[in-house]
Design a protein around this nucleic acid. Sequence first.
DNA 1: CTGTTAGCGCGTTCAG
DNA 2: CTGAACGCGCTAACAG
Lengths: 344, 344
Amino acid sequence: MTDADADAAGPATVRSVARAAGVSVATVSRVMAGTGVVSPARTERVLAAARDLGYRPDPIARSLATGTSRRVAVVVPNLSNPYFYDIIRGIGRASAADGYTMTVADSMEDAAAERALATDMLQQADALVLVAPRSDRTALEVLQRSRRPVLMLLGPRSESELPDLSVDNLGGMTALYRHLADIGHRRVVYLSGPPGAWQNLRRLEAARRAEGFGVQVTVLEAGGTIAAGHDAADAALEHGPTAIACFNDLVAFGVLHRLTERGLGVPTDISLTGFDDIDFSAYSSPALTTVRTPRERLGSEGWRTLRRMIDGESVDPAPPELAAELVVRDSTGPVPSDAVQASA
Amino acid sequence: MTDADADAAGPATVRSVARAAGVSVATVSRVMAGTGVVSPARTERVLAAARDLGYRPDPIARSLATGTSRRVAVVVPNLSNPYFYDIIRGIGRASAADGYTMTVADSMEDAAAERALATDMLQQADALVLVAPRSDRTALEVLQRSRRPVLMLLGPRSESELPDLSVDNLGGMTALYRHLADIGHRRVVYLSGPPGAWQNLRRLEAARRAEGFGVQVTVLEAGGTIAAGHDAADAALEHGPTAIACFNDLVAFGVLHRLTERGLGVPTDISLTGFDDIDFSAYSSPALTTVRTPRERLGSEGWRTLRRMIDGESVDPAPPELAAELVVRDSTGPVPSDAVQASA
DNA sequence: CTGTTAGCGCGTTCAG
DNA sequence: CTGAACGCGCTAACAG
């Protein structure tokens, strides 16, 4: 009768609950896990004892015993971009609804770190989501041989056998160029994304298409952050473009900042476009013309397919790309009549 | 001699490595964990075998054996606010440097969910960070009784015994009101934050101080998101303020949007302030006058004190608040001469 | 339906 | 220094 276990020596265990309820540990396990069948009477006794002792099954021990953790690991290249956060949120909420816990790690745009994190975390989770991987094909192939499900979001698609959910980068970027062409632009600079970003490849392809309808695209290296955009703006200007297209909205903000510093008006002197349509793009000055892609949905949909993989069902390794939608706002406008901004 | 374990039956274990190296499992454990002393020769043999077999100690099993997971859990109220993820990034990077893994969960502004998540995650981590808790005192006290270290960031401070690192909300908000007073404002509406946000309490206190220097502050409920700001703007206007002060930058963006919709100019018709100085606040139109607080540093500093708690050292439960700095940009200006915007 | 028992993979005494 | 043996807390056969 000595319920000394109550709060005396550490947390309650299956054993202490079993003793208190006068049943075996197996019965306690069965009741708590909802597995197997236990008589109503005993079920009640166990539940009562568990409640009294404040018992909660230890997930670690459970993991060791079952070999599953009900945890999903997520690796993102950059925790500073709201775009990725929306995706994470999507995964987090969808997986939480299924009783899964999410672990997030930031590879800081470093392919090597990404690879290390991926293997590390995969060891402690049932599955892994690689968001916008920066790793090359071979590194990705290693992951593919893991026993555990791995899903990529915004990855290389056909470049790998890993299931990869993505958005229509090519279509979105092409729409942007066409919009630019429609309002008279012929010379545009494209500020390309961080090294290793597979997204960038598809967006780059759009440049060739653009030439098809008369838009000359000069590609310059930039990156994926506000700072990168700010730093690349001057170089972009030297090519005398009438519009600057950016890898993403963050870069566009950086460019916008630099342009303003130099006293250039957008879109009066030069037009500017982003990509992603993060929340803030509607509030910048001017509001950004960009391409909207379903962020949170990418996460939740991703979780759903990952869930199927966990459950051993087969999934399409290259599901249809999610649609990208052109959003025209105020940062793009007709070409100014005196449009010859030669190198400063 | 049958090294069938190589890649045949699942991952290598201490046992398979021990066999391959011709030593006992204890020796393998000692070498891998870097604990105890093992002869150089054997150490080498073990390392070689481990490499050959691609052995990596199972963190789950290790956790069960040691009772520690080298994992830190983080609960935030809202994964949509860049402010919070800057903090998360700070925690993530600092803890990763110490070999810890971070698990993040979003309570979605729900105090009950927050409490559940906190206890859940604390069970699978060595320590917990509660960012901007929405729970009340009593719920917080429960957590305090946990055997594991719990740290609050932006919490109630003196209201609880839990260590709580915060920023100088009172000082920051007061500086904002004083700036407004300096440029002639006398009637301002304060759009207060989400229910349960302790931060809000201190910011509210500043209103009383503001009255000390002639600024009349009307408090209205809003929330912590862009949408909340957008929805509260009309009500705010009905009080005929010459300036609207917002709980945070997100709310300010929402208000800004609504103001623009109604054709009101900022700051020509009305002034607007935020709080937090998230990255985007410098890029809005107009750029936001706000208060900057050290976000990532809050996270990294928080991790450092949590780390001390994990190591059993004692920490100051109420460390000095981190400084908040007034950032005057373009959303605040002198009161227009015809400043009598009576209820629409 | 229920209890007993043998692991899950590792750390850790405790003798040698 | 090294190895054998036990235990972390739980689940999963396997008998009853």
